[in-house]
Write a protein that binds this DNA or RNA. Structure first.
Length: 496
DNA sequence: GGACGGTGAAACTTCAGGTTGCCTC
DNA sequence: GAAGTTTCACCGTCC
């Protein structure tokens, strides 16, 4: 760790310290999670002001998880000095604590990613926008003016301050001019319709047909011609051919039927015929209710229908290979060997065999993502996961939620398609995923008040299910999970 | 002499966010 | 492309 602070950082630190000196608060926007952590750390090391309330808060933050992660420790040490970092990788309780204690004035500075710019109402006297560039596929690019406005708009607290300050940090004289032109004098960019993204378009077309709002080509065109999407797209003919392409896909996947209209003079079952009727199939309806992108749904179905032998990894990999799971975990140099090994070990269990002939890097990313889920359901701790996979607690939660939704979708699709062999495995997997436990803990974890940590402790002490819990003496239980919890658990079991 | 700790440069890694599902053990 | 993090060689100190 380098304690010497390079010149270019000092102005942000000075601004932060000046804010504290004035007894005001500031938000500092940076472009990455680790940048927000490093920035908060630098400021906290320079800030001398602490107090008892901050100590209490710092301890609370440290002990939110059963075993504190590196991130918890780092955040806790910053908060001890009244400084915090805030991004999507934080545990949700920690995030809430930071927000609440910024509102009540205890925390003076938050270094954050753009999470805080939109949605959350957290005004500050001063907003410092340190990074106006962000990494994209085309390298470092200036962020949109709209985003800049969101961030700058956090400055000034209506009830407390008459003014607010939004400060941009330029890295050079040239950039200073660019920022002035683009953000201060510039206009916000136009808004674009989200429908232009194909997955969204597919989902909407299916949902329109499925709910019966649209049931012919004519109605479909009519509906879309009134949307903002059409207004922006301009070329109506091109849009119509795009829509027909989607309809054909849905038909090929058996999510909708195109039925002939018996009154029509020209009978043909294709989707082009003006008068043919679009009707969602049972499968299509379910997919629409699940909010699944039809493309993903089709992929899942193809996998679920495979008759080859499946294991847990098969399903975890199936859901990792979807648009919804993007972005997949990225691969480090040191990962390759392990991932290749994992791949060859599970080659026979992978359901989407097309992957073997495609982009190998992508294949390995799907393997790594599935591997991450597999480690999670085998009780790898959050700290270890951060270390091994570089996924922070808040991101684990997010990925798990997506996975659970997709597994549930797999379950529902299997039900509609009468693929009964998948059902039990999927239910089991979902439960294990939810708690992050091995199969042996499943019956314990189902009991209220018992999560992954307590379940593991109990199991290792020979208590393996609810019957064991009933039979065990209160004193013994106390020695395992602590006094209060033991009493509460006993109460719960007797009631249930 | 060896263990240990601090240092700094070079190599490596990563890059914001967060929609949507449901009743079953 | 830039910043943050990790790794590693090097050096001085202490026992």
């Amino acid at each position: 760790m380098n304690l010497e602070i390079p010149y270019k950082y000092t102005e942000v630190i000075d601004l932060a310290l000046d804010t504290i000196e004035k007894d005001k608060q500031a938000l500092i926007f940076v472009n990455t999670k680790s940048s927000s952590e490093a920035q908060a750390e630098r400021i906290s090391k320079k800030n001398k002001k602490t107090n008892q309330a901050l100590d209490i808060l710092a301890d609370e933050i440290l002990n939110i998880l059963s075993s504190p992660t590196k991130q918890c420790k780092r955040l806790s040490e910053c908060v001890r000095k009244g400084i915090a970092f805030h991004h999507s990788g934080l545990n949700s309780k920690q995030r809430e604590l930071i927000e609440d204690n910024f509102r009540n004035g205890l925390i003076k500075i938050i270094c954050c990613t753009p999470t805080l710019a939109a949605g959350l109402d957290l005004p500050a006297y001063r907003t410092i926008i340190k990074d106006l560039k962000r990494f994209t596929r085309r390298g470092m690019q200036f962020i949109p003016v709209l985003e800049y406005l969101q961030m700058a708009g956090r400055a000034g607290r209506p009830k407390y301050d008459k003014i607010g300050e939004a400060i941009c940090i330029a890295t050079s004289e040239k950039q200073k001019e660019e920022i002035l032109e683009m953000y201060i004098k510039g206009k916000p960019e136009k808004i674009f319709s989200k429908l232009s993204a194909e997955p969204v378009l597919r989902t909407y077309v299916l949902s329109l047909i499925s709910t019966g709002l649209v049931n012919s080509k004519k109605q479909l065109f009519e509906f879309f011609s009134k949307t903002f999407f059409a207004h922006q797209y301009g070329d109506i003919q091109k849009m119509e051919s795009l829509l027909l392409k989607v309809v054909d896909l849905l038909k090929n996947w058996n999510f909708i039927n195109v039925e002939e209209n018996s009154n029509s003079m020209f009978q043909s079952a294709d989707s082009l015929n003006e008068e043919n009727k679009y009707v969602a199939t049972l499968l299509g309806k379910r997919i629409s209710e699940l909010y699944l992108d039809p493309y993903t749904a089709n992929k899942l179905i193809e996998g679920l229908q495979k008759e080859q032998e499946k294991n847990d990894f098969s399903y975890l990999h199936l859901i990792s290979n979807t648009l919804e799971m993007m972005p997949l975990l990225s691969i480090r140099k040191s990962d390759y060997e392990k991932l290749e090994e994992k791949l060859s070990l599970n080659e026979d269990y992978i359901l989407d065999t097309d992957l073997f002939f495609d982009d190998h890097y992508y294949l390995l990313s799907t393997i790594k993502t599935a591997f991450f889920f597999e480690q999670w359901i085998n009780e790898m701790t959050e700290d270890r996961i951060f270390e091994k996979f570089n996924v922070r607690p808040g991101e684990i939660k997010f990925k798990i939620d997506v996975a659970d939704w997709l597994l549930f979708s797999c379950y529902e699709l299997s039900k509609v398609l009468m693929l009964k062999s998948n059902l039990n495995v999927l239910t089991k997997l979902r439960l294990r995923l939810k708690y992050g436990v091995k199969e042996e803990l499943m019956s314990l974890v189902k009991i209220e008040l018992i999560g992954k940590v307590r379940a593991r402790k109990l199991f290792d002490s020979g208590i393996k299910n609810i019957k064991d819990l009933k039979n065990i003496g209160l004193e013994t239980l106390k020695s395992i999970v602590g006094e209060k919890t033991a009493i509460n658990i006993k109460k719960k079991i007797q009631m249930g």
